[in-house]
């Protein structure tokens, strides 16, 4: 087996294949970054909305609760197919990468909103009372008091989620998006050894997720110390 790998290595690591793998890596990274950034922003909005007591916002709150509870319980692969079949007739011509990215955003918003909500709820009510008694409005309380105190609780699981998500984007290969896993499959289909094809993909996933894991661990340590 190793003989085959050694024999195929020069042909495998040609510039064309390397660019192909790097492009796939870019798609995996892109889906993760866009998905998690969108998920963080929308997740924050949902978490704040769910914490609000305003009667006027009740219908929106119910929609947000329904969304989070449903999307957290559906497998990512099913979300991918739902989005594919909903988007295709509505917006014909949307690329598969676009559809996969929308799916990633939907899933990460649901999960990250719960992580952020848990963080916001970890801040004692006494802190909020103190802010309200000093005339802080809801936004000022969130920005100056609640959020700074909840990062400690939000960031470690959020970082772990992002790391996990790098790997979960591989399911987009089922739609035909040429991300890392699909690229590996294509290279193997071209006749390269699976050990070589998927070995290279394994290294790429490691290159993407290891620095993230380290950064998350360092952040966790720093926050714990503060």
């Amino acid at each position: 087996m190793l003989d085959t790998v050694m024999q195929q290595a020069p042909a495998f690591f040609n510039p064309h294949n390397l660019v192909f793998i790097l492009q796939a890596m870019g798609r995996t990274l892109g889906m993760t970054i866009v998905g998690c950034t969108t998920g963080f922003v929308l997740g924050m909005a949902i978490a704040v909305l769910r914490g609000s007591r305003s009667v006027l916002l009740l219908p929106l709150r119910l929609v947000a609760i329904g969304y989070v509870e449903v999307f957290r319980r559906i497998p990512f692969l099913v979300i991918l197919f739902i989005v594919l079949f909903v988007i295709e007739p509505l917006l014909p011509g949307t690329s598969l990468l676009g559809i996969a990215t929308i799916s990633v955003c939907l899933l990460s918003t649901a999960f990250l909103s719960e992580i952020i909500r848990a963080g916001l709820e970890s801040v004692p009510g006494r802190q909020i009372d103190g802010a309200h008694a000093l005339n802080f409005n809801a936004l000022q309380t969130l920005v100056m008091v609640t959020l700074p105190q909840s990062w400690k609780v939000i960031l470690p699981p959020a970082a772990a989620f992002v790391v996990m998500f790098v790997k979960d984007t591989s399911l987009a290969s089922q739609l035909g998006v040429i991300e890392l896993t699909f690229a590996g499959k294509m290279l193997v289909n071209r006749g390269f050894s699976p050990l070589l094809g998927f070995g290279a993909i394994l290294v790429c996933y490691f290159i993407l997720s290891y620095p993230l894991s380290r950064a998350a661990a360092r952040l966790e340590k720093r926050l714990a110390a503060s």
Binding site: R126, A133, N135, V145, P148, Q149
Partner: peptide, 25 residues
């Protein structure tokens, strides 16, 4: 109001706790 459990903002220094409302609010 001064609360039983002080309710000082844990993310702010003593000085910032005292000045945040007069400056920001």
């Amino acid at each position: 109001i001064v609360f039983q459990e002080y309710n000082l903002f844990q993310n702010m220094t003593v000085m910032r706790n005292v000045t945040v409302a007069p400056i920001k609010i």
